[in-house]
Design a binder for these strands. Structure first.
Lengths: 241, 241
DNA sequence: GCTCTCCCACTTGTATGATAACCGGTCAAC
DNA sequence: GTTGACCGGTTATCATACAAGTGGGAGAGC
C-alpha cells in the first residue's frame, strides 16, 4: 500500500470568507434585516483585500442571503436563503442517501399518480418503448440504465407539472453518482433482480395506462422502495401500511 | 391615480454579466467541460473591468455552473446546476402557484405518513398544543396563522427526515407571500372555513397519534387539497381516486 | 427656535495596474 | 530519453483610486 495521496489544494480565500459569512448568518449572528459590517471592516477582520470580500458577498447576494445598496451597506435578507434549495455534493453518508432517496420516493410516487391522470398518447408510447428496450436487455441478463432513466423521466414529464419534473431531475442528478457506486457494490449479491425490476416497471406502466392514479402511485412507491433495498439503503419506512 | 412609481435603479454590472453567462451556459453555448474565454477576454467583450467579471464568475462557481483552476481557466461543470434547486421569486402566475402547491401536497403528505411512524411524545405534545391554540382562535371566528404554521412545521420535523423538513420550509417560504395575498382576496368568500380547517387539522393529528401512516398521509393531502381550493388554486388533480 | 441647504464622512460600485501562484508546453543540456 | 530551466498565458490576490449613492450634521437664513 502506498502512502501517496492527492495533495490538498489551498482553498480560495473568497470561498472561505463566503463560508464563514454564510454560517454566521444562518446561525442568526446577524438577524434578518440587520446590517453587516462594511466591506472595509470585513476585509480587515478576515485579513484579506476588499476584492475577496466583494467576491464572497457576490455569492451571498446570488444566494439571496444578503442584499446590498450602494451608499448604505449590506443587509441580511428578510428570509435568508428563501429562493434556494441546496444539496451537499456527493452525499456519502448512507443516512443522507436514504433520506434523499425517501424524498424522491414521495415525489416520484405522486408524479406517477399525476401521470396516470394526465399522460397523453405520445407519452404512453414513449414509456412503452422504454419498457420494450429494457425487456430486451433483461433477456440478456443485463440492465439498461439509460432506458430506465428515460422511463422515469417520461413519467415525470407526463405529470405535466414542471416543478415535479425539475425537482426529480435535480434529485436524480444528485443521487446518480451514489446510486452507481451502490449498484456496483451490491451487484454481485442480487444477480436476478433485473427480472423483479422489469416486473415493477410494468406494474407502474399498467396502472398509468388504465388511468388508475392511486395504483400508479402505489406501484411507483413500491418499485422505488424495492430499489432502495436493493441498493442497501433500507426500506421506505413510511410506506402504505 | 398618481403616475408616481418607484424608479428603476441601474442594475449592477456584475448582475448583468452573471445573468448573460448563466444564460449562455444553460443554452448550451458552452458545452459541459468546455473552457470559457479568459477573464481578460470576457472583460473586453462585456466592456467592463476584470473585477466585474470575477464577481460574476464567483456567483457561477457558487451555483456550480463553472469550475475554475488557477493557471488553466474556467470550465463549465459536468452537470451544470446540479447541486441547486431554484424557484423564481414571488410566483405570481396562478398556474405556477398551483404546481408548486401541488408539490408541497405530495411532500407534506408523505411527511405526515412518516411522522405517524416516527413522532415521539414531545412532538405529539407540540402538535396537540398547536391544535389547542387554534381551537381558541376558532372560537373567536379567527384563524391563528402562526400556530397553523407551527403545526405543519412540527409534523415536518417529526418525519425525522431533515430533507423533508428543509424542503417544506423552503417551499413554505416561497409560497408564504402568495398565500397571504390569496387568503386576503378570498377571505370574504369563505367566512366559515375556519371550522373546516380545524376539523382537517384534527383528522391529521388523530391519524398520526394512532400511528396510522396511510390515514395520516391521506388526511394531510385532503387538508392541503382543500386549502388549495380555498385559495382559489383548484384541486389537487392526482389525489387518491 | 425652526427650517432649509450644503457639505462631509461613509459605503458600495467600478476601474486600473501590479504581483504571486499556477499550468502547459518548448527546448536546450546532459 | 529524461531532466530541468524558462516562457507565455491564466487565475488569485492585493493596493489604490475614483464614481455614485446615502444619511446626518453644521451652519446659514429666517
Amino acid at each position: 500500500m502506498s502512502s501517496i495521496t492527492s495533495v490538498t489544494r489551498a482553498p480560495r480565500l473568497s470561498d472561505e470568507v463566503a463560508r464563514q459569512l454564510t454560517a454566521a448568518i444562518r446561525a442568526g449572528e446577524y438577524a434578518p434585516g440587520a446590517r453587516l459590517p462594511s466591506e472595509k471592516e470585513l476585509a480587515e477582520r478576515f485579513e484579506v483585500s476588499r476584492v475577496v470580500v466583494r467576491e464572497a458577498m457576490s455569492r451571498l447576494k446570488s444566494d439571496e442571503l444578503v442584499d446590498t445598496r450602494q451608499g448604505l451597506g449590506a443587509f441580511v435578507s428578510a428570509e435568508p436563503g428563501r429562493g434556494l434549495f441546496r444539496l451537499e455534493p456527493d452525499p456519502a453518508i448512507v443516512k443522507d442517501l436514504h433520506d434523499i432517496f425517501q424524498l424522491r420516493v414521495a415525489v416520484e410516487g405522486a408524479a406517477a399518480g399525476l401521470a396516470a391522470v394526465r399522460a397523453n398518447r405520445s407519452e404512453l408510447a414513449a414509456m412503452r418503448a422504454c419498457l420494450r428496450e429494457m425487456k430486451i436487455s433483461v433477456a440478456g441478463r443485463q440492465d439498461d440504465i439509460e432506458a430506465d432513466n428515460r422511463f422515469h423521466a417520461t413519467i415525470a414529464r407526463a405529470s405535466r407539472n414542471p416543478y415535479f419534473d425539475r425537482f426529480l431531475t435535480f434529485l436524480g442528478a444528485n443521487l446518480h453518482g451514489a446510486i452507481a457506486k451502490a449498484r456496483f457494490n451490491t451487484a454481485a449479491r442480487h444477480p436476478t433482480s433485473v427480472l423483479a425490476v422489469q416486473a415493477e416497471h410494468e406494474a407502474v406502466f399498467a396502472a398509468i395506462e388504465r388511468r388508475d392514479a392511486s395504483a400508479a402511485e402505489a406501484a411507483m412507491r413500491s418499485h422505488l422502495s424495492a430499489a432502495m433495498e436493493r441498493l442497501g439503503l433500507g426500506p421506505f419506512a413510511g410506506a402504505r401500511s
